[in-house]
């Protein structure tokens, strides 16, 4: 982890006092006790304006409405599809969540999405962790066909996306690969340079705060011959 990056941040473990002041507000992964703000999770402190938060270094994916995820069909019921999203929950895709009208008397649900199909889909509602809904009625949503799949620590996904999508946009543009980043840590990659892209994603996952990471990634990308970019498929930035 680069000295530069760590200069304004502290490594904290649960319970550590980050600061003691009523002028600041407890943000993500922190809690207030009396005048102090404490870390709730293992991670690095981050102060933005008056908000104090902790950037987690490890986490499981907790579904949040609006997130794009890569999910797999694991069951088909009479009124929709059950999708695996993460160890914490499955999600349900109902008939109203797909783009076309399905007359269940005339066609089987499996003819739309069958078991083991992969979907890039949008979390539409989280009532409780056992009732999570997704929708394909989202411009970015689609069925994913032949490609590579990798699992990334969900805590590192924001780093892979980068500030306002800067990192992933660079990777997509320079590699010519189609990439769908699931907030759940599952990433789908399609293209001739998929293997090289996986290597880059693994590098970012293992050294998210290394000095000059962006330059290093750019260099690796320049070393591969870019394919023509076919469309803006799966752009979540």
């Amino acid at each position: 982890m680069s000295e530069e990056f760590l200069k304004n941040r502290d490594f904290v473990v649960p319970g550590d006092e980050i600061l003691k002041s009523m002028d600041y507000l407890p943000g993500r992964n922190t809690y207030r006790e009396g005048e102090s703000i404490h870390a709730k999770k293992l991670g690095l402190t981050s102060v933005s304006g008056r908000v104090v938060s902790v950037i987690p270094l490890n986490s499981v994916y907790i579904p949040k409405a609006g997130d794009m995820v890569v999910a797999r069909v694991i069951d088909i019921q009479s009124n929709g599809w059950v999708l695996y999203v993460s160890p914490i929950c499955n999600a349900f895709l109902s008939l109203s969540g797909v783009r076309q009208y399905i007359d269940t008397n005339r066609m089987s649900l499996a003819s739309v999405y069958s078991i083991n199909n992969l979907l890039y889909t949008n979390i539409s509602a989280v009532n409780q962790l056992d009732s999570v809904y997704v929708t394909m009625q989202d411009p970015k949503a689609r069925k994913l066909d032949d490609g590579r799949l990798i699992n990334i620590n969900p805590a590192k996904i924001p780093r892979i996306i980068g500030k306002e999508g800067s990192m992933i946009t660079m990777i997509k543009n320079k590699s010519g690969c189609r990439i769908c980043i699931g907030q759940n840590g599952i990433v789908w990659i399609q293209g001739r340079e998929a293997e090289a892209v996986i290597e880059i994603l693994r590098l970012i996952e293992s050294q998210p705060y290394a000095e000059g990471l962006t330059d290093k990634v750019a260099k690796m990308l320049d070393n591969m011959k870019a394919e023509e970019i076919k469309d803006d498929y799966g752009d979540e930035s």
Partner: peptide
Amino acid sequence: MIIDEGYI
């Protein structure tokens, strides 16, 4: 975690 079965 989803395993890339087809790929393997």
